[in-house]
Design a protein around this nucleic acid. Structure first.
Length: 245
DNA sequence: GTTAATGTTTCACC
DNA sequence: CGGTGAAACATTAA
C-alpha cells in the first residue's frame, strides 16, 4: 500500500465521503498502542497526510497511522485479517489492518513540518538541497529513502526518479553537480505526482521504467542489486544512469 | 509450500 | 556513543 502517493489517495477517498468534522461513535480493533476510549465521541477536525503517515487530526491530539509494508484499509467494508483499528461514524466506517497506530499529544499543525513532505504544497526543495549537502558521503540511493528529508519516498519512487534523472544509485552526494541534485529533486516530486495519477488510473505498473523490469525503455538490461546501507533492492541501468565519483 | 515485496524499529555487536 | 546489520513484525500474490 504505502508510498506517499498511496496515502494521499486514502485521504482523498475519505475526504470524498464527505464527513464534516464527524464524531466517532464507535472504536473497534485490537490496537494496543493507544487507548481506544480516547477517541470515542471525539470529533475529527481534519484528515491529513505527511509522507507515509495518515493523520487523523483532533483538536488536542493526533492519531498517526503507518501502513508499513503490508497495511491495508477498507472504507465501509471489512475483511478476515484481524482488525487493528476501526472507526465508526454516523454513516461511514473506516477500517485499518496491519498497521502501526500512535497517538501524539497536540495539534497536528504543531507536531509536523510539511516542508519535508514530497506531496505537500509546502515541500521545500531548497531545504532538501541544504540537508543533502550536510551528508556528502551518503549514497543517493540511501538518502532518497530518508523520511526526514524526503518523507513519502519509497523504493519505487527512489528507483524511478533515479532513472529519470539519469543518476547511478551509488553516486555520492558530494560528487553530484548541484544542477544534477536539483534535477533529481524535481524528478522525485514529478514522479510522485505521476505515481498518484497512474495509481488512480490503475496504470502504475505499466508505467514502470526500471522497477521490477528486465530492460529499460531503451532496451538495455536492468541490474537489480541490494545497494547502500539500506540494502533495498535497487533497479538501474548502467548505460543510462551515470555514476558520479 | 516457497518466495519476495511499495517499511520501519529494535536489539546485538564491534 | 556511532555505525552496521540482522532480526522482528505482518500479508498476500505469484
Amino acid at each position: 500500500m504505502p508510498e506517499g502517493p498511496s496515502i494521499v489517495i486514502l485521504k482523498e477517498l475519505i475526504d470524498d465521503l464527505p464527513l464534516h468534522k464527524p464524531e466517532i461513535i464507535e472504536v473497534s480493533g485490537n490496537v494496543k498502542t493507544i487507548a481506544k476510549d480516547r477517541l470515542l465521541h471525539q470529533k475529527v477536525q481534519e484528515f491529513r497526510t505527511l509522507g507515509k503517515h495518515f493523520l487523523i487530526c483532533f483538536n488536542d491530539f493526533t492519531i498517526q497511522i503507518h501502513l508499513m509494508l503490508f497495511g491495508t484499509y477498507l472504507i465501509n467494508d471489512t475483511k478476515k485479517t484481524p482488525l487493528k483499528l476501526g472507526l465508526t461514524f454516523k454513516k461511514d466506517q473506516i477500517n485499518f489492518y496491519t498497521c502501526k497506530v500512535d497517538l501524539l499529544e497536540g495539534n497536528a499543525k504543531d507536531l509536523y513540518d510539511w516542508s519535508i513532505d514530497i506531496m505537500s504544497d509546502q515541500w521545500d526543495d531548497k531545504q532538501a538541497i541544504k540537508t543533502l549537502k550536510e551528508n556528502p558521503e551518503s549514497h543517493i540511493c540511501d538518502i532518497l529513502l530518508d523520511q526526514h528529508i524526503f518523507a513519502g519516498v519509497g523504493n519505487i519512487i527512489k528507483n524511478e526518479a533515479l532513472y529519470r534523472a539519469k543518476i547511478h544509485p551509488l553516486s555520492k552526494i558530494k560528487d553530484l553537480p548541484l544542477a544534477k541534485i536539483k534535477l533529481l529533486i524535481k524528478a522525485v516530486v514529478a514522479y510522485s505526482f505521476d505515481f498518484l495519477k497512474w495509481r488512480k488510473e490503475g496504470t502504475l505498473i505499466k508505467h514502470w521504467e526500471v522497477y521490477n523490469q528486465k530492460t529499460c525503455p531503451k532496451g538495455h538490461p536492468i541490474e537489480k542489486k541490494e545497494l547502500g546501507k539500506t540494502h533495498r533492492q535497487t533497479y538501474y541501468c548502467s548505460n543510462c544512469q551515470k555514476k558520479y565519483s
